[in-house]
Design a protein around this nucleic acid. Sequence first.
DNA 1: TGGCTATTTGGCAAATTAACCAAGGAGCTT
DNA 2: AAGCTCCTTGGTTAATTTGCCAAATAGCCA
Lengths: 108, 108
Amino acid sequence: MPKPLSSAASKRVAVLKALAHPSRLLITEALMTRELCVCDLRELVGDDLSTVSKHLSLLRSAGVLLSEKRGLNVYYRLSCDCFGEFLKCVDQVGAEPKATRTLFPNCC
Amino acid sequence: MPKPLSSAASKRVAVLKALAHPSRLLITEALMTRELCVCDLRELVGDDLSTVSKHLSLLRSAGVLLSEKRGLNVYYRLSCDCFGEFLKCVDQVGAEPKATRTLFPNCC
DNA sequence: TGGCTATTTGGCAAATTAACCAAGGAGCTT
DNA sequence: AAGCTCCTTGGTTAATTTGCCAAATAGCCA
């Protein structure tokens, strides 16, 4: 049984979990450029449409994406334009071979 | 079967997955202040020692943590000092109620 | 060496997550 | 209204992850 989590912490975990999946990260990266509809995203990731829809729904409920229906299509976009910065941080993690680092230099 | 992933992408996913767990995020946050040994971290998260050790091993292999054995203890520390920035980004995601946002303001 | 402490590893059962198919809206357009 | 397109939801099975116990390893110290 998981121990009670502060709401701030569980929100962080929800966001991270949402992004910690190949298709969902790909979707998020694609949306950094422009909003896209579900069928665009389906083509991008190549999974079954229902699978993509579920990924999108998860990203939306984590607060990562916003959606809007226009006509027949549903368009998704990032809720936040900080993902460039965010991914830069991710890429800095362990950018160097771990064995060669012995202290805290200035890392990133 | 997952489709082939670029190595940069799978590395990103590995880092995000490593952080997307309550205990592992807690550990990572604690290590932002100072390095700690396994027993300190065990006390912090309250799980079985072997569970904590597996979390640490996962974080290390994702490149998030570095470890060093000194005497009987193994000390863990962050591989990177950019986590403050990183978490700031995470917290900005969906910081506003989703419904009220209709476009890209300057968000974060 | 033997014993003690700190940590890791192996193995397994429970819980969670993922992906597909099929069926169900929702909103054009005629 | 009928039919079509786009998307979401329900339900099921497979795969992955989690967490504990027990056993193994590593290093100190008598």
